[in-house]
Amino acid sequence: MVTAADSGEPRTSVWLAAGPAAPARSGGRRSEAPSGLNRERITAATVRLLDADGLTRFSMRRLAARLGVTAMSLYWYVDTKHDLLELALDSALGELALSAGPAPEGWPGRLRALARGYRRVLTDHPWVAPLAVAYPNIGPHARAFDTALQRLLDATGLADSARTGAHLAVSQFLHGCGGTARRAPEGDFCLALDVLIAGIEAKAAV
């Protein structure tokens, strides 16, 4: 599995970096930026390649071949392969529906919808779960997801340590039980989710 520490060197998240430095040709002359490429197109191609070939087979060379460019061309837009994996991770999380509108079942219904949506992302993109562990996961879509979860927890009425515990329980459930989406049957996932929600409701009623 690819991890953020593969290189053995500390790195800065792509979401905190100022931006990639343009690559240079030998002799110190900068090459021209490749026509038709941008970070969004490269990220989308990365997601497709990860879906098709998996995380262990991903490489900048294979991605460049799919885009019909040289591997060096990609470094106009990202500094490292890890940057691209972070971008792909957040792009996949962008598929989540994060509507904060009312639901017939109130916050429990919205939490069920959010959790099932997260599970679908993990099922559609099996590489998301390991990357969510390997990287800081602080991209805009990840932060929007956490904001949606925080608003749901606001609606429970829990406060202080109980609120913190509920957030931890939901997060661990999604990354644990949700992360085994292809092995755990849907019914088992939904039953576990119902038990989790019942526990939060019981705590809120105290």
Results as ranks from 00 to 15, higher is better:
Thr3Asn: 03
Thr3Asp: 01
Asp6Ile: 10
Ser7Asp: 12
Gly8Lys: 05
Trp15Ile: 02
Ala22Phe: 05
Ala22Glu: 15
Pro23Leu: 01
Arg25Met: 06
Ser26Arg: 15
Ala33Asn: 02
Arg48Cys: 08
Leu50Ala: 12
Asp51Phe: 00
Ala52Leu: 11
Asp53Ile: 11
Asp53Lys: 15
Gly54Cys: 08
Leu55Glu: 15
Phe58Met: 11
Arg61Glu: 11
Arg62Ser: 14
Ala64Arg: 12
Arg66Lys: 12
Thr70Pro: 00
Thr70Glu: 13
Tyr75Ala: 00
Tyr77Glu: 02
Asp83Met: 04
Leu84Tyr: 00
Leu87Thr: 13
Gly94Glu: 08
Glu105Asp: 11
Arg110Lys: 13
Leu111Val: 02
Arg116Asp: 00
Arg119Ala: 10
Arg120Ala: 07
Val121Asn: 07
Thr123Asp: 13
His125Tyr: 06
Pro130Cys: 02
Leu131Val: 13
Pro136Asn: 12
Pro140Tyr: 05
Phe145Ser: 10
Phe145Tyr: 13
Thr147Cys: 09
Ala148Glu: 01
Leu149Met: 01
Arg151Gln: 08
Ser161Met: 07
Ser161Leu: 09
Ala162Arg: 14
Thr164Trp: 06
Gly165Arg: 05
Ala169Ile: 04
Val170Thr: 13
Ala181Arg: 09
Arg182Met: 00
Arg182Ser: 04
Pro185Arg: 04
Asp188Ser: 12
Cys190Phe: 01
Ala192Ser: 10
Val195Glu: 07
Ile200Asn: 10
